[in-house]
Nucleic acid binder design. Structure first.
Lengths: 303, 303
DNA sequence: TGAGCTGATATCTCTAGGCGTATGGAGCGC
DNA sequence: GCGCTCCATACGCCTAGAGATATCAGCTCA
């Protein structure tokens, strides 16, 4: 890339004069007197090395060289004007792109309302959403693959990231319809001590995993994990086949399967937190706007 | 069109830094010291109103706003560089476009050699050729529809235009094969006194028309015009049908029709001139180059 | 022939900005 | 802790160029 030879103000004057083909009128449009315009054009012609306009008395016209330069000048000017406007829009947070990671179980609860409200407020902002579990979200935030995370059971101390609780929801027991406890309205955690468990593997969300096993420990038993599955959808399907039972955030009641029953869990104080996460030093104004939107939109949990 | 807000040198620095993502290296590539580069970027950022680069220690990266501005800046810079190069090429006469009018009868004689030679010398020049008779060429030169004319019997005094004889060629008699004179090797003009004539209308080429009727007058008769036709091709076709005879520049021997005979004309001093014509004040360097080419390429007439 | 329009020239002012050197300050590795 | 890298800041110099006013020159038209 060589250094630019032609100053933009001169090219602007050139473009306007090329439209008016009249020094006086062009100068007026540019908001300057006529002699300075003559100078601008002359300077530009000197730099190009050839006349750009032919000045016959009473008639200004583009030379072939001028005709060649004009489209380039126009494009450059409009490109820059548009680019500047776009950069300002993005810089001010009016437009741009925000990459959001979210836990699958939120696709039916907090996410839709959030997206809807944010899109209404900032229609020019493009939202790229990516389903991912907690641990990958943390990693993606660190290497800037996403800008916002919506995750369960945020780690208590993750340097460089900020968290804020969006929603706290109770746990439910996930049972096969045929399970004896499915007949009751609520389930005591301890009553699950003898059933095999279907859980998400610890790696995809250590916080939630530890939270669930913690509930069991608190109830006096260690859960026996019969099977792991990476999605709640799959967990429910496995429960339906009678492979075991599970404990899950109440949100997954939205997953409707005929052979699966969701029952309230006691103690009712057992709750799981959903949090929004971001890089604490992220200068992107869209991030703070999304955080503001999150805290303004009331999040209603299930149960 | 608003006045440009961003100076090009700063945009250039911006583009280079966006490639290097390193102030020191970018400054080196720009051939300046590092502090000035920091200034350029800062000034640009002030004008845009937002940071374009994020400077974390040991790591320079584009902000979203910078990413938005970059493609526009690149396009503007390359557009201008290309536009400038093109304008210079055209201005210096290395490239461009030349519109040439030519008499149909020259399509098979002077035109091909001229085009060939010129194209070899200036391969970047586009030649637009338009078949037209003498009078329209004069008009087209005046209103700049063409830049060069190749015509027969140039007017002796046409203000604003320059002419130079390219070729002087004899006349031939155009006869139906069945015509008694077709049996002889050459024809005396006076021998055609009793034959009806097929000629081009005077309007399309008054010079040539007057030249032909002048030959007849000199031979002691006024030609009786049985039919006009606007193209030599048609004239020959009409002669072939026996409608009459004609006098034409020797070039049209190239038109081969079975029923038509071309015979040399006496007096042999009767010749017609082909000239190149141009606007005498045309600043287009291509015009003078074409004129130079014309005078350097030896033009060989027929007979 | 004189008025009016159009563009070029001359001259002056002023400032934005491009570049340099010198220096400061934050991280990072030894 | 020391030095190194990397970027920012401060200050000074100097030129390009954008703007103004005043004036001139060529053409047209009444």
């Amino acid at each position: 890339m060589e250094r630019p030879e032609l100053p933009l103000p001169q090219l602007h004057a050139f473009a306007v004069l090329a439209e008016e083909l009249h020094f006086g009128r062009a100068a007026t449009r540019l908001g300057i007197a006529q002699p300075p315009l003559s100078q601008q054009i002359r300077r530009l012609e000197e730099k190009v090395g050839h006349a750009l306009f032919s000045r016959e008395p009473g008639h200004v016209a583009l030379t072939p060289a001028g005709r060649e330069l004009l489209p380039a000048a126009r494009r450059a000017l409009s490109d820059l004007a548009e680019g500047l406007a776009a950069a300002r829009a993005v810089g001010s947070g009016r437009a741009g792109c925000l990459r959001i990671g979210f836990a699958a179980s939120l696709a039916l609860t907090v996410l839709p309302g959030l997206l809807h409200t944010f899109r209404q407020r900032f229609p020019e902002v493009r939202l790229n959403i990516h389903e991912m579990t907690t641990a990958p979200q943390i990693a993606a935030l660190h290497d800037k693959t996403i800008d916002i995370g919506l995750l369960r059971e945020p780690p208590t101390d993750e340097p460089g990231l900020g968290f804020e609780t969006v929603l706290s929801e109770p746990f439910v027991a996930v049972l096969p319809s045929a399970h004896p406890l499915a007949a009751t309205r609520t389930v005591e955690t301890a009553q699950l001590a003898d059933s095999p468990f279907v859980l998400l593997p610890r790696e995809v969300g250590p916080g939630l995993y530890d939270r669930i096993t913690g509930l069991c420990t608190a109830a006096g038993f260690t859960p026996r994990v019969a099977q792991h599955a990476v999605e709640w959808q799959t967990v429910c399907a496995l429960v339906e086949t009678g492979l075991g039972v599970s404990l899950a955030p109440a949100s997954i009641r939205r997953i409707r399967l005929r052979g699966v029953a969701f029952r309230g869990l006691r103690p009712a104080t057992a709750r799981t937190r959903v949090a929004v996460a971001w890089r604490s030093n992220d200068p992107n104004p869209l991030v703070s706007r999304l955080l503001a939107t999150v805290s303004q939109v009331p999040q209603r949990g299930l149960l």
